[in-house]
Structures are given as C-alpha cells and as structure tokens.
Write a protein that binds this DNA or RNA. Structure first.
Lengths: 356, 356
DNA sequence: AAAAGTTGTTGACACGCTTTAGTAACGCGC
DNA sequence: GCGCGTTACTAAAGCGTGTCAACAACTTTT
C-alpha cells in the first residue's frame, strides 16, 4: 500500500495509538477520505460503500481521533474554560454541573481551573491569572468565570482575549456580560408565599445589608408587601452574620422583643444557614414550625434545607441553570451572535417543603 | 529574516495568535533555539545573552505556547482525566479540589468529565463510557475514577488503556489500584473519643449494614470497645435510612427503649445526616447535648456538622487527601514506578467540635 | 464528437511545536 | 597547519489531523 506520505508505518510498528493513516490503509482509501467521512463533510461525495468500509475499519482498529491534533489543524477547539473558586465551595458546585451538562449536550468540553481566592489581593492573586493563562494555552474558545456568591468582581485582563461570561457575579468594570440570580423576584416570591399563608406580621433576618443578595431580596420583600397594601416594618428587619449562630441570635431578638400577640408569625431568613439557627431559637421557646411560626429560607442549600425538621421551604439559587445558560451564552458569543443583554437574570424558584 | 520554513508570515498578517516562529524572528534566532529556552533544555548550550533576548521577545509579543501542539509534537500531554459522578454530589466535591490542587503543584492539568450515574444499568450507562472515551481522545496520560460513596465498582474497559486509579471506591474485578478511606480506623477513633469522655454505654446508629462504610466503621467501634475491655451490645445498634429522618427514628428507638439510668449516654451516628436527626430526637426529649447525651458523627458534611447547634464532633472523610493522593499515585504510575499497594487507606481524622 | 458537468477520490500543504542530527566557528595541543 | 573537542546554534523531519485544489472516470448536453 504505502500510499500516503513517504513513510507509512503501521500502528503496531510505531507502538503508538491507531491513527487516521492506519484506518485509511486498512480500508484501502486515502486519509483525506477517512477525514471526510468522520467529519460528515456533505460537500464531499463519498459512496455509501466506501463510507461503510471506513466505519468498519475504524471500529475494527479501535481508532480514536486525537483531539489535540484536530484542534491544531482546524483552529477550533470546542473547549470552554471554567474558572471558579467554587471548587472550594461545595454548595455552589451546581454551576459546574449545569455547565458540564450543557457543554456535553453541545459536544463541547469544559476545562475547569481553580482560582482559590474569594477576594484575594495578597499572595494568591497570581493563581487566578495563572489559571486563566493555562486555559488560554489550551486554546479554549471562551471563558466562564463563576463566583461563590453574588458580587462584583474584577476579572484579570487576559480573560478579555476570548469571549467571557460571568456567572453569579458581575463585572465591576462593566464590560463583560453576566448571569446572575434574580434576587428581587426571589425575595418577592418568598414573601408572597407567606402572605398567601395568611401571615401579615413578617420578621426578616437579614444578611449584611450591603451585599447584592441582601439588597435585592429585601427589595423583593417590599414589592410583595406593597402588593398586599402593606409596608415593611424596619423594626422587624434584623441583620446578623450569615451563619446558623447569626440566625439564632437574630431570631431570638425578634421573638423575645414582642408580647405573644404582637410577635411576627413568620420569619423570612435571607439564607438557609440563618434559617437553621432560627429553627433552634423557635424550638427552644417551645414553639412549633410552621404552626406557631412559619419559616422561609433562601439559597436552597440542600444539605440543610432538605434535612432540617421540618424540611425548610426556601427559594433556590439557580446555580445549575446559570451554569447551563453560561455555556449557551458563550456558544452564542463564539458563534459571533450578539447577545441580547449585558446582564441576564435567572429566576429563583420557590421550593415548597414543610416550614410554611 | 524569513529564515524558518518557506513562508514566514508575521502574526499580524496571519491574524492568529503569536507563535514560536514570531518569537524566533523577533529575537533573531531559530525556532529551535526558542523551544530549547522555553523548555529549559540543559543539553543545549544557549548563551545567557540569547536566552535573555528570547525571554524578552516572549514577553514583548505576549507569546503563549499552544498546549495542544506541544502535546502533539512531544507525545506527552501532562493531562489527567477525572471521571466522577461527584459533580452531582456536592459534599464529595473535595475530591476534585484535592486532585486539582495536587495537579496544579505537579504542573499538570486535570480534565473533569461527568458520569452521572451512581449505579445506572439503564439508559445512562453509555454516558460514563462516552466520558472516558472523550478523555482518551484528549490523550490524557492517566485516569482518576471517583465515586460518591465507598463501594465496589465496575470500571469501563477502555479505562484500562491508560494507568487508572480509583478513588473512594475499589475495583470489583480486583485489577485496578484504589484509594479508600480507612473506615475501620475512623470508627475506632470515634468510639475511643467517647470512651475517653467517660461513656460506657454507647448507642450506635447504623447505616445499611451491608455497605463497606458500615462494615468498617462498626468493626472499628468494636476495636475501640475491646481496647477498653468492653463489647458492643448488639441491642444498642439500630439501623436506619441514611437520612435525618432515619437518624431521628433510630435515635427515638434507642432513647425510649430504656429507663433513664440504663439509657446510653452517647450516640455514635454513622453519618452526619443521621446525627442531625438524632439531635432533634434528643432535644425533643428535653435532653441536652453533650450534657445528657454526647453525639459523634461521621463524614464531616461541613454544611451540617459545622452549623448544627451545638456544632457536631465528627470523623471526617478525607476526600481532599484522597484526591491529592490519587494524582500522586497516578504520577508514579505514569512515570513507570510500581506502586506499593493495590489499596491505599487514608486516615479519617477526628474533628473535635462541641457535641462530646 | 467535443464540451461541460458530475461523482468519488486524492496529493499536498498547513497547523504550532519537539527533537534529532547535524554544522559553523572557535580554541587548544602538538 | 592539522585534528579534535567545545560552544552555540539551526535545518528538517516529524506529531495527527483538516482542507482545498485538482484529477480521473463517467454522464449529460450541445
């Protein structure tokens, strides 16, 4: 045979993987033809017979295309990079899952790189840059940049060399498109749920009032109350650390402040960890959930919400959806389509369990 | 210039990335020399002057090596693949973190592929194979295969084409090396902790008695008791579903079965979710933790253990360590070193919090 | 019967890099 | 002035694939 190229050693002689040349030789055609068949090039007319013979050879030899070589030759990689500190934050790992699944559907490959620094300015600053650099060395066609909690971020400038989409955060410099949860709608939905259940006096256990999550969710709570002709009583809003202890203390303060008949009948906890603490405060006082006090959370940290007793009704952060949407947005960008908006809001669905 | 190759268009003309050729031209040397410098080839004598000039050119032009091309030419990829259903199981994501960090240290790249199927035999079976296939197309030099819970698995046969290491699971066919938690030592450590605290009557809330985790942890509990001249009272071992509800029911059964003075003074819960349920059962009966009943868990599901009130003392599953060890083992294998053991056990450290 | 398609296939270059086998220039000992 | 070793570099052959221009063998049109 020895048709293609000066030297055509067989796979066995080379002791490397089976290459396209081996397939071509085995099927008695040129390598080009094999390439056309494997890539379904409709412009090339390959006879059904030849195609079949090639497919058979592929399977017989166990040929597996070399993704790197393909990328090199075609100048397309089908790879996206995902940079995230999420690797350290278990509960937000669903971004990875959503992105992975969508990438899989789109026949793309997701390269995940760690950037272990929430707000590092010090020694770790370099790691994020290095991670992005590494991804660019792999010639990813686009970047996803995900944060563990909704906030503004500064993205290393090398990320601007390819299409980049931010997930669960937004570009503090206002250049890059982003995908964030619709905190406000989520807050509205939560409080509406409490209103529907008949609650009129609702306590709010707030996060650090500065962060986007707190601002949005509280705004949503106001929206809901306004819809029922009510106002948010500032006295009923207590801030605390975003932990179970913080929630416990805040709940104690609210519960102990009023006589029984003026006490709020429901608590909107701006995250599930605080709700967890609120549960303790409520139970400690001999009150029942949801009988005496209804509780609604936010975040849907499954390990908490689904295992509290009673199970916690909460508003979910749509990590998985955001991940998937991130990949789709990136696909649109790399395909040259202009995206519709700088910032896409994703719905936060209410998960009904048993605490309201 | 135009020294290298027949055509030597500049980067600007090509409108592609900067290549090694561009660097070579800019520095006035051959591409080979650039390659030698960038790879620190000590066999080649490059003058300090030339080296410096090349480094400068690299920075000036913003050259970034093409990882795919490099892999193609050198027949080495520096990539490992990690196959895992873990992407769906947030609490075990630390395997990814451990592996990522270690890979980063070793200057290797970890490609993560999803295999969304715990025990699928049906429609999803193909996904795992496809994931491995995809990784092999990327020419990964080795594979890590991680499970969400300790068990025997059947690994697709294509995984046998490259060095493969199992994490948190073992090869049911007994061929591949694996890394698993030392459940037995963990169980021992937990019960020893209770013994040290003076407890003699210890209730055990057991998992499904069949699974490796239950077998090992219980065995360890027996070891510890034997060390104190005690035996495990089978009556005090109650199995339940591995959930908070399961733990609640099991705890109720144990607590209600005995008069106050015969009641166990401590509960060893074989996982944290069950401990969470046990907390409720204990508090419901007006008992305090650890005053009346000490509780110790297993798994260290941080979102639970660190946020329960009081915080849960528990034995940690060393996911991060296993991930790191997996990468190191793989590195040894791919370097041709024989590994020492088929199955490596990793310690499960006791995390002291406030429930004992 | 010549010209103009059509169908099925291939040769050859390109992608960006590594690596082996060189070579030119120089200094050294005899 | 010759051989020999050293130093500092380079030419060229790959790695496995995509892709385009070209071509041979037919079929159809003029």
């Amino acid at each position: 045979m020895a048709k293609n190229g000066p030297i055509t050693k067989s796979a066995a002689v080379r002791d490397r993987g089976v290459t396209m040349n081996d397939v071509a030789n085995h099927a008695g055609v040129s390598r080009t033809t094999v390439s056309f068949v494997l890539n379904n090039r409709s412009t090339a007319n390959i006879s059904e017979e030849t195609r079949k013979r090639i497919i058979e050879s592929v399977q017989e030899l166990g040929y597996r295309p070399n993704a790197g070589a393909r990328a090199l030759a075609s100048q397309r990689s089908d790879w996206y990079g995902l940079v995230t500190e999420i690797v350290t934050a278990p509960f937000a790992v669903n971004v990875i899952k959503g992105a992975q699944d969508q990438a899989w559907l789109d026949r793309r490959f997701l390269l995940i790189a760690p950037s272990d620094q929430a707000d590092a300015v010090g020694p770790n600053q370099g790691m994020e840059d290095a991670a992005i650099e590494k991804l660019l060395e792999q010639r990813v066609e686009g970047l996803l940049y995900a944060a563990t909690f909704h906030r503004g971020v500064h993205v290393p400038k090398s990320a601007h060399e390819v299409p980049t989409v931010l997930i669960n955060c937004f570009d503090a410099d206002g250049k890059l498109p982003s995908i964030v949860p619709d905190e406000r709608a989520g807050g509205r939905v939560a409080v509406e749920r409490l209103l529907v259940a008949g609650h009129r006096r609702i306590g709010v256990i707030n996060l650090d009032p500065q962060i986007p999550a707190a601002v949005g969710r509280l705004e949503g709570a106001r929206d809901a109350l306004a819809g029922a002709g009510l106002e948010l009583d500032p006295e009923l809003v207590v801030s605390g650390y975003a932990t179970a202890d913080g929630g416990y203390e805040a709940a104690c303060e609210i519960l102990d402040r009023y006589p029984k008949d003026e006490r709020p009948t429901a608590l909107f906890c701006l995250n599930d960890r605080m709700a967890m603490g609120a549960y303790d405060a409520i139970k400690e006082r001999g009150l029942t959930i949801p009988g005496d006090i209804a509780v609604i959370g936010f975040d849907n940290q499954e390990l908490i919400a689904a295992y509290l007793r009673p199970k916690l009704t909460t508003v979910a952060l749509p990590f998985e959806k955001m991940g998937a949407l991130g990949v789709r947005t990136l696909a649109a960008l790399t395909a040259g389509q202009p995206i519709t908006a700088d910032q896409q809001l994703v719905d936060c669905p209410l998960l009904e369990r048993s605490s309201v």
